[in-house]
Structure formats: C-alpha cells, structure tokens
Design a protein around this nucleic acid. Sequence first.
DNA 1: GCGATCAGTT
DNA 2: CACAACTGATCGC
Length: 740
Amino acid sequence: MSNIGKIKIKAIADLQATTQKNVQPEPPLTTKNRTPEQKGRGRARAASTTKKIQPKAEPCSIIASTAFKRSSKKTPLPGQLRIDSFFASAVKNYKVNMVPNSSSKTVDPPLAKRKGNPRGRKRLFEESTSTSFAATDKLDAIPSEKRVQPSRRAKGKENALSESEVIDLCSEDEQTIKTKPSVVATPCQTSCPVIASKLKSPEASVPETQLCSPKDNLCREEISHVPKKFSSYNSSPSSTVTITKESPLAKNSKKGTGRKEKRPKPCPPYKVVEGTTFCVDGFQFGDIDRVTHYFLTHFHADHYIGLTKKFCYPLYVSPTTARLVRTFIKIDETYIYEIDVDQTLTVDGVEVTALEANHCPGALMFFFKLRSGECILHTGDFRASADMESLPIFWNHANIDLLYLDTTYLNKNYDFCHQSESVDRAVDLVRVFLEKNASKRILIVCGSYVIGKEKIWLALAKEFNLRVWTESNRSTAVRCLKWPELDSVLTEDPREANLHVVAMGKISYPSLVDYFSLFEDQYDMLLGIRPSGWEKNTKPSYGKRISTIGIEYSEHSSYKELERFVRFLKPKRVISTVPVGRDLFVTGDVPTQWYKYEGRACMLSTGYQPSISTFLATPKRALAKFSSDIEVFLSPVEENAFEGNKDNITDHVTIMSSPTEEECFRNDCEIPVKNEPLGPDSSPNSEIVAGNNAMESQIPYVEIYIKNETLTQCNVIEVQKSEAVLLSRLASDASDDWLL
DNA sequence: GCGATCAGTT
DNA sequence: CACAACTGATCGC
C-alpha cells in the first residue's frame, strides 16, 4: 500500500498539547474558564480545610479532570467519524497486541476522620429566624390551604416481610428469601462501620489508615444512640450482600414498651452495589446487613429520605452535597467524606471515582472499580449528554460490567430539548412579555426545587438585571452551593427583588393570585414560570394580571439521551434504579438491544457512539506506558514511508486512510483491507475500518481506514501507539467474536 | 422536638 | 394523565 495521497494532518503530540492529555494533574483552572460550580468547589475546599482532614491530595489520587469546556451539542458533528463503526467493522482477523500493563494510578484511601461531636437538634428546613421584611415568613407559608388528612393506612403493610427474612443479592435474578444470620456482632462492632470493616475477611480489610483513629473511643460513644445492628460479619467474603428485613432503626422494639414494632421498608437490591458493601441513596431501609459505606448522589429529598442526624456510617458525598447535609440534616461530621468531581478515592479496596451527573448542583455519578477489576457505574440521577462520552474514565475503562441507571424517562414519549435551549426559550419568552408590557411593573415568579432549576432563574436575573429573592430554606440551600453568580443576584428582601423563586407547587394560578395579593402595591402584573420536564408543548397563559409560562426543562435524561449513553457504554448488564410504580422492587426495563451485542448484525448499530475526534480530544485519557527497552515496531506502511528510519518515529502508530478505500467509496464497492478479506459486516456503510494484523509479530499498531469524504484532506493521523493499543483493546472488547 | 409516613400539588 | 420533588399534615413517641 502506498503512501501517495496521504497527508499527515496533525501529530498526536499536538493534539495532546492542546488537550493536556493524561500526564500531569490539571493546572488550576482560571477563574474565567470555570463554571460557577467549579469556582465554588475551589473556594469550598479552601474554606473547609481548617478542621477536616482532607483525603490525601496526592497528584495521583486525582485521575483526571473533565473540567474542560462542555459542548452543548447533542450529536456529533456531521464530519465526525463514529467509533462504533470502528468497533463494529473490525476486520475478521482483528488481533490485539496488549501492551505491558499500563501504570495504573493507585490511589490512597481517604483517611478516616474521627472527630467532631454530635450537634444540637434542628428541624430540616426550619424557618429562617430573621429577614428584613416581615412578610417573609408569610411568603414562606403561602399557600397554606388547610387540608384535612384522611385517616392513615396501617404502617409498614407494603412489602412488609417477616423480620427473619433477608434478600440475597447474589443475583439480581434470584432474590431468594433466607433466614437472618444468627450471628450478631457486638454493639461496638455493629455500630462502628470502621470496626465492622475490620471484622470482615482479611482481603477485605480496610487499610490501617481507615481504622478508627482515636482508638475506637468515638465508636463506643456512638453506641448510646446507635441503633443495634443485626449483622453477620463472619460469613464468607463474597459478592453477596444480604439485606436484613428487620432494622435496628426499629429501636422501639428494643425498648420493650409493647408498642407495635416499626420496621423499615425492605431494601430493594439495586440500592446496594453488587460485589461491594456500598449502598447508594438508600437511607430509608434501616440498617442494611453488611453495608459498611453509604453514598448519596445528590441532595434531593427522594434520595436522602431516611438520612437523619443519627446516621453513623461513612457517607460519601460531593462537597456541595456535604454542605447541604451539614446544614439541613446535621449528621455527625465524622461520617462525612467528600469526594469531588473527577476525584478518585479508594474505599474499602474499591476505587471510587465521582463524575459530574449533570442533574442538580452537587449531583454525582459514582464509578466503582472493584478489586476484581470489575467496573460498575452508578448514575444516580443524571442527565446524559454527549460530553460524558469524552470522560476519560470511560475510555480508560472500556468495560463496564454493570450499570445502575437512572431510567426516569425511559419511554419513547419523553424527549427534551437541551437545557441551554430551555434557558434560551425562557429568556426569549420573558423578553417578549416584558416588551409587550413595557409600561407595567412586573413581578416574575419562578418555580424551583430546593436545589435544581437554578440555571433558569439565574439566566433571567442576568439577562434582565433582576434581583432575586427566594424562600428561606432555598436561600439557605443556595448559599450552600457556593455559586457566586447566584449569591450576587440574591437579596434577603423580597421587596427589593423583582424575581422571586418559590416552590414549584406555588406556580399555579390560584396560588399566584394569593401571592400577587401581597405585592399588588408594588407591581401591576405577575409572570409565573414553571420549568419542568412536563412543560413540553404547553402554551403560555397570559392574563390581565397573572400570566404563566411553562418551560420545558429536564434534569433527567430523555429517552434518546439514555439510549445513546447506554449504547456508548455498552455495559454487560444494566439495572434500573427507578421504580416504575409504587413497588420499590419493580424498576424500569432497559432495552437489551442497547447494550447486548449478539452476532454480527448487532455490530452494525449506528448513531450512538462518539467520534474518533472526540476520543482524540479527550483530555487526560490514560496512555499505556511503554518502557524504553521495548522495541518499537512500525506498521509496514510506516516502514515504507520512513525506509526503516525508526528513530524518528518511535512513539506513534498510524491511523491512515487508503486511496484504494477512497476509490471504493466513490465506486460504492467493498473496501479491501490489507492482506485480509473483509468481514461480512464491513459494508460500504462502514465509516471506519480498523485492522491490526500484527499479532504474530507483537507489533502494537492499529490502522484505521477512514472512509469519509470530509477527511480526504486529512487521511493520516498519528496517534501514540499506546493509544492505538487502547483503541485495539476497545475494539477487541467490542468485537470478541471477530477475534481468531 | 423528632422521625415516619401519608396525601396532595405542580 | 404521565413525573420528581417536594410540602404539609398527622401520628407516636
């Protein structure tokens, strides 16, 4: 094959230089380029280091940062090549030359923090005690329509199993009922998770650094208010986690008061990460047997429900969520472990990496890499985006064994525009409204959750130069976000603000009528804004005094976004974490064709993979390390091109296009691959054909034959051979049945 | 005062 | 009517 017609477009070194790939910890971001959230993070950290022992901030403990600019595009650019085609069309004798093990980043565990005292008691979302305006409390209470509560149903009737029942999480398919383990640990063992970890098998024992440090004293102190835990720590170590039906949180049962025993809900299996003793977003199930660490993905009530100040296990949260938990729930500081976006901690031998979930502020996804090498992603609540496909961790860990997926909108009917479009639409509608009523004094009232939806009201405030007032609980929450732009528009005095942010439930006509009555003297009109996933195609309602507009705005993935995300990850298994009805045990059904690839036909899937250019632009993706004494081989093409002068080209391979292939493209015929016939799936529609026929000679190279008109001027791309190996690995994983 | 849990709201 | 995420109310301690 000749090199005629090949043009070297860009050395990978240049690409890497521009993307600061993999090598060093990311330099501090300039304020200018950071998102408010990121800015907040930095500040929060600086501010919070006074008391708390931070996890070791070794450079290697932070795998990578994805704090690069995120595109708002939902689909790859037209000219981009899709890597799924690359995977799918691997030639039949595709062989992979595995490199010497890349130096894996080892990460030190977050050190145990043992200090702090239980704090005083306070209600969640208590009323603020002081505002500059007397109406504030009144505002907080609006609307306070009294409802008569019907008589309540019997407690615990739903899913109530006998206390001797446990769920075996060996297999998601086989939830068998077993007898509760008879072994009960001592009070301190059971109440102190750190001690509890020690009781586990040797290989599962925690590092010294994770043990209770002021020797267990605190653990003992905790016993007094720690509910007794029924656990079996002497059972053999395995991936099995059992969940007791009876909870020690049923402290009432211990009091012998004769009161009917209160049992927590049984814990659905998807709350516990398989192969670990980690529970994600499951706090309402009492003590879960053998669960030693808890993770809270974000601070929304349906996720932290059950988390109270009595909580006494290690809790892993983002810094933002940590501030919210400290503020509203006040669990013992001892148990809060912060993990920031793109940070990796080793927890009980499991590498845990936090990823931005694109949900509400502080929302995380958790990527678990088990001792076994198994990789598990838990999305928490998230909104999938194409940008996530550039996350280095997905490229550096090509195999996801299990995906816990937020399937909130797992229905083809759910299709949302991008959040930026929602924001633009809100701004446009408000602008039109303001222009049409230019002579009027207008109060804008925007619905919101305690956290979430900030982008909408912040955009309005900035665009129209509005001051913002919000209810006291939300105001407190917003301060926890450490988002300077939000702080800068907020005011304590509702009279000073012409944009009020209130609970979503108050954005209804009758409620707004009541609300407006408080400000009639100050305004002529009120415009209510409802940002919600349900506001698709809803028409604004314009009234003489009260108007409302709905803004399609979702913080969960649309169906298409979900599909694309799952197709991108190609996990071996998927477990939905979203119940479809009232029964927490019944969750969504993720279409298996999104991730199960059987036979060749399935490998022709299109449309949901990132492009090669996305891959190349991914900052900090891992590069396999080559030691200097490994001889570097070149593809035959390169050898021809450089006539054996390997020294100049020692660390690259070639991704090249073939003139023959271009010709074939023009002629719409099959693409010949060097020395090999094409596999049957390499139809003319394949955009990229990858080949590596160098297994015999252990040559780490990959050739990618590009078939795309837009790249005819840039047919040859150099990549580092280690990247080629990574590509090979990805390709081989995706197409095992194409290997000899 | 606290936590559990329900119904109701958008 | 989907729904998530509250919000308010009651109950039992």
